[in-house]
Amino acid sequence: MKRRNLLSLLLLLPTLASCEPEKAMPADAKNPAPMPKIPEGAETITLGAGCFWCIEAAFRRFEGVYSATSGYMGGTMANPTYEQVCDGSTGHAEVVQVVFDPKKITPEKVLTWFWDLHDPTTLNRQGADSGTQYRSAIFYHTDAQKTLAEASKKAAQANFKDPIVTEITKAGTFYPAENYHQDYYFQNKSNGYCRMVIEPKLKKLKLDH
Rank of each mutant, 00 (worst) to 15 (best):
M1I: 04
R3S: 11
R4T: 04
S8W: 05
P14M: 03
T15E: 15
L16I: 15
P21I: 01
P21V: 06
A24W: 09
A27P: 05
A29V: 08
K30S: 09
K30G: 01
K30I: 00
N31G: 03
A33F: 09
A33S: 15
M35W: 02
G41M: 09
A42V: 10
E43G: 07
T46W: 09
L47I: 01
A49S: 15
E56N: 14
A57S: 14
A58W: 12
F62S: 03
F62R: 10
V65Y: 09
Y66Q: 01
S67T: 15
G71P: 14
Y72F: 15
G75W: 02
T76L: 11
A78C: 04
N79D: 15
T81V: 10
Q84A: 13
D87P: 02
G88L: 06
S89H: 05
G91Q: 04
A93M: 04
V110M: 12
F114T: 01
W115E: 10
D119Y: 04
T121Q: 07
Q126V: 03
D129N: 08
D129P: 02
G131P: 07
Y134I: 03
R135A: 07
A137R: 10
T142M: 06
Q145F: 03
L148I: 00
S152P: 02
Q157P: 11
N159W: 02
V165I: 15
I168L: 03
T169Y: 02
K170N: 03
G172V: 07
P176D: 10
A177N: 06
A177V: 05
H181D: 08
H181I: 03
H181L: 06
Q182Y: 11
D183N: 15
Q187P: 00
N191R: 13
N191H: 08
R195M: 12
V197L: 02
K204D: 12
L207Q: 02
D208A: 12
